[in-house]
């Protein structure tokens, strides 16, 4: 059991980074993106390509940091290229466009022989461990939380609240939508590189649209707009398949159905997700209702 958890915990951390970064785009900025698996893939393959083909003669730890940095930068660039045209769209159209781009990324990878194409990319060194994942989770959460508690973060939130009002307050809404999108994509890329150096094997099918939906489920479960919610959502949905597997094969096969039922139940009982838009903070638990900010 302990070993099992040890295996799972880096994946939990990676999913936390994915969920928090998607939440920045979807829940905090209010731009409905369904392409997160694509940015994850860009980071994973970039980081893996570095360590397989170009790793410098440095200690593994430094090389991991470099490959995560490269994954971050590559995904930021992809986020910029995809975000600029897509973020002019709204709502459903934005969701469909980002979904399309996510799939395009996957198909491009599928057809690039140097990184394994449909055979998958193997021979990636195992550099990621629980320590590095935890460190990057903390870095991601601190950076995003700090941004949110500054003027740029408030501008990002104001777009979700009311884009027309934000514009009328002198806030360049397109610039901040793009900023949120690019930062969110970048951290997904970082998570990708961590993932590549953990599983040591990448296959394009692992980065399909379905996984974007699962990350989306994590943030909806935790509450769109709540960082702590995303963390909890990521933990629950990473453990869920394992718990279901534990309950037997038939239950496990009905996984997506169980998710759907859970999601419907959540929407009926707590439409805002577990935490709504708020953060879990023990200090504010005792404040009177209506006083919370």
């Amino acid at each position: 059991m302990f070993e099992f958890f040890l295996h799972l915990s880096p994946l939990i951390g990676i999913n936390i980074i994915l969920a928090v970064s998607l939440n920045l785009i979807n829940g905090i900025c209010g731009q409905f993106s369904l392409g997160h698996a694509g940015f994850w893939a860009v980071g994973a393959y970039t980081g893996a390509a570095y360590s397989v083909y170009g790793a410098l003669p440095l200690p593994d730890e430094l090389n991991l940091i470099i490959s995560c940095g490269l994954g971050f930068i590559a995904a930021c660039v992809a986020g910029l290229i995809i975000g600029v045209p897509c973020l002019r769209l709204r709502g459903d159209y934005l969701a469909i466009a980002t979904l399309g781009f996510g799939e395009i990324i996957r198909i491009v990878i599928m057809n690039t022989d140097a990184i394994g194409g449909p055979r998958g990319f193997s021979g990636i060194p195992k550099w990621t461990n629980l320590f590095w994942v935890s460190l990057f989770v903390v870095i991601t959460v601190v950076i995003i939380a700090n941004i949110l508690r500054g003027t740029h973060g408030r501008a990002i939130i104001s777009i979700r609240e009311d884009e027309i009002a934000a514009d009328s307050m002198g806030i360049y809404t397109f610039k901040y939508k793009t900023l949120a999108f690019v930062i969110g994509a970048g951290f997904a890329g970082l998570a990708g590189s961590l993932y590549a150096h953990y599983t040591q094997f990448l296959h394009p099918n692992g980065f399909s649209f379905m996984f974007s939906v699962i990350i989306l489920l994590m943030i909806i479960l935790g509450g769109l707009g709540s960082i702590t919610g995303s963390i909890v959502g990521a933990i629950i949905l990473t453990l869920m398949p394992e718990v279901l597997r534990f309950m037997g094969e038939t239950v496990s096969q009905w996984r997506m159905v169980i998710y759907s039922v859970l999601l419907i139940a959540l929407m009926l009982l707590r439409p805002g997700g577990i935490f709504g838009k708020h953060e879990f903070n023990p200090l504010t638990l005792f404040k009177k209702k209506g006083e919370e900010a």
């Binding site: 408030r154 939130i157 609240e161 009311d162 009002a165 009328s168």
Partner: peptide, 12 residues
């Protein structure tokens, strides 16, 4: 400006 149907950042 202000708006005819108030446009505050409601959850802030």
């Amino acid at each position: 400006r202000t708006f005819q149907n108030i446009r505050l950042f409601k959850d802030l």
